[in-house]
């Protein structure tokens, strides 16, 4: 303030005020730049991987092992469609060697401005370091017409494909290909990890199928259309969602129509993500006798789901405990 007053008394105040401000900014920037350069030249060897969601991050960890650093942007329990484009993500993306996104417009509401801000050539579309998870995945529910009267539908299909473990294998393959391109020396390491990961999933599939045989064909409802791949893979039948249309919260009309339908069809479970309100599902559970199951949609959704495999271990165990006996 004293500087400003001084400047005001001076006839040529504008010049000194302006140049002072700009000079201060330049000095500050140089100081900060100098400081951070000094402390940032050690970590060169490891590939810096940024994944938009924790499940993609978990798979990247499986493949990269100790040769990579992995950061996930979205928090495990939050709605992946509505992540805040925090400015800190710009800094993270600026330093990324690899960006793994889910694709299919899962991150359409927040990733584009971050990438624009990050000004990082390595992770632009078409660059070697950009992995789009949905590439090569057969997406379900691809709409034939686009009309938002149908709710906030996904024009490219349902993006929650990682809840089918076999799709996880496809994404792992993509990640491995990318890592091999960027770090050829460690390629054998990545390939071994990929083989191990795929084998583990195949072995687990046998175990999971035994478990799911107990409740195959059981009818369920979900809150949002986020478990469809999971249900299809493990033989559960989706009757309807609590949301009348994607992104539209449950309405009394919809719920009142849903309850008799659920009773008629003998729906056994209401599957919801950890971030969904429980009032509506619990109300419906009371009226239908179906059980409310909170199943994490991604890795880290709770303590038990620390990696990709344990996500399925946990979710299937929950299902088996809730509906495995009665069927």
């Amino acid at each position: 303030m004293r500087l400003l007053r001084l400047a005001r008394n001076d006839k040529k105040g504008i010049i000194s005020g302006k140049s002072l401000f700009i000079q201060l900014m330049v000095y500050c920037s140089l100081l900060i730049a100098h400081g951070s350069l000094l402390c940032s030249d050690s970590a060169l060897a490891k590939l810096n991987i940024v994944a938009t969601t924790p499940d993609l991050g978990a798979i990247a960890k499986e493949i990269g092992g100790d040769k990579v650093d992995v950061k996930s942007l979205a928090r495990p329990t939050e709605d992946p469609h509505f992540v805040d484009a925090r400015p800190s993500f710009i800094t993270i993306l600026n330093k990324a060697d690899v960006l793994i996104e889910g694709g299919a417009m899962l991150e359409a509401g927040w990733l584009p401005p971050l990438i624009e801000g990050a000004r990082n050539k390595k992770i632009q579309i078409g660059s070697a370091g950009r992995v789009i998870g949905s590439d090569g995945i057969t997406l379900i529910q691809v709409p034939t017409t686009l009309d938002r009267a149908m709710g906030d539908i996904h024009p490219m299909g349902n993006p929650h494909y990682l809840l089918d473990p076999l799709n996880g294998k496809v994404v792992a393959q993509h990640i491995c290909d990318t890592l091999c391109k960027l770090d050829a020396a460690s390629c054998p390491h990545f390939q071994t990890n990929l083989e191990g990961f795929s084998r583990k999933i195949d072995e687990k599939m046998v175990e999971w199928r035994k478990l799911t045989a107990l409740f195959k064909g059981t009818k369920v409802v979900t809150y949002h259309k986020s478990y469809d791949y999971f249900l299809e893979r493990f033989g559960l039948e989706l009757v309807d969602t609590l949301e009348p249309k994607p992104g539209i919260p449950p309405s009394p009309t919809h719920i009142n129509a849903l309850i008799p339908r659920m009773n008629e069809d003998g729906v056994k479970a209401i599957i919801i993500e950890p971030n969904k309100e429980k009032k509506t599902p619990e109300f419906i559970a009371e009226k239908t006798g179906a059980k409310v199951l909170v199943l994490p949609g991604t890795v880290g959704g709770n303590e038990e789901t620390e990696d990709y495999i344990s996500l399925f271990d946990y979710n299937l165990a929950q299902l088996a405990a809730a509906i495995g006996g009665g069927h």
């Binding site: 359409a108 078409g126 024009p155 799709n167 993509h174």
Partner: peptide
């Protein structure tokens, strides 16, 4: 998409980028 549930979906080759490809910065497709 094969109906056999044990079948792994095939993994297509990633298309190499060329300057003639449209850039989908905003992901709308």
């Amino acid at each position: 998409k094969l109906p056999s549930s044990f079948q792994q979906p095939p993994i297509p080759e990633k298309q190499p980028w060329s300057p003639s490809h449209p850039l989908q910065i905003f992901g709308a497709g």
